[in-house]
Design a binder for these strands. Structure first.
Lengths: 141, 141
DNA sequence: AGAAATTTGTCCGTATGTATC
DNA sequence: AGATACATACGGACAAATTTC
């Protein structure tokens, strides 16, 4: 049977099944998933397809894979309760010494003080992006 | 020759080459990349390897692929403000492993790959500010 | 409108390299 | 050193979306 994938591709179905096992704690957090060779036998799919399915979960950050070790289920990030963690400061400003890279850009000595302003944007509590802006200290005369 | 990947895997070298073409505007923003079949011939690599290379760039959000159409180079945002005189912006994009601080913000493990986009604004040749934006690699679904 | 060509998407099977146990 | 497990790479085949004629 070459390649009939009506509706949903095979690797997505397999990803769904594995995701369900992780979310239902059939595969508890921290545990190793079955090896690719085992999954190959169980789902009767080629190794490439199994790897594609695992890649989906990895992109979802539901699992982490280590070369030669295996693939772990990652601990679930549970939602923040109602009056739980207050939102951290969205912006922060501090002074840092210029490293070689920044020093070269600003044409100053390594170690020269720079202002770093960091802002964190969140969406539903999860961080979307971290932006850091570097400037020279303003020396007014 | 089957599979010698000393140092850097083949698909990463190919990704590097294609990235260079995009960043050097050899492939201008919005333009289609050569088809997979063409790249296969040019790099003398299998289609799977070519697709792996393109997947890297897609995760970096440097390109976007459409079924039946092809793969586009995505426009780099320069966002030159309204009549600001001659404000140039250089941008660079690369992957870096998350340090402890960024890992904590994004709630991922230390070492997780992040995309760092750096833009340097210059006015009359002198650097005004360096902005670095950190994001997680694209997640689909 | 329709058929053909092009291009990406999915899947298989196999072989070999590299890291970990 | 051997066994196990993931990573890289090849080549072939068919499916599905888009463009072209």
């Amino acid at each position: 049977m070459p390649t009939p994938h009506y509706g949903q591709p095979r690797y997505r179905s397999i990803a769904d099944e594995l995701r369900a096992r992780i979310e239902s704690y059939a595969i508890p957090p921290g545990a190793l998933l079955p090896a690719e060779s085992v999954l190959t036998a169980e789902f009767k799919a080629s190794r490439g397809t199994i790897r594609q399915a695992i890649a989906v979960l990895r992109d979802e950050r539901l699992v982490a894979t280590e070369h030669g070790r295996g693939t772990y289920a990652k601990p679930r990030r549970h939602e923040n309760g109602p009056d739980e963690g207050s939102v951290e400061a969205e912006t922060r400003q501090r002074q840092i010494p210029a490293d070689r890279e920044l020093a070269a850009l600003f044409a100053v000595e390594v170690g020269t003080a720079l202002v770093e302003q960091q802002s964190v944007t969140r969406k539903n509590g999860t961080v979307g992006a971290v932006v850091r802006t570097y400037r020279l200290l303003q020396t007014r005369r």
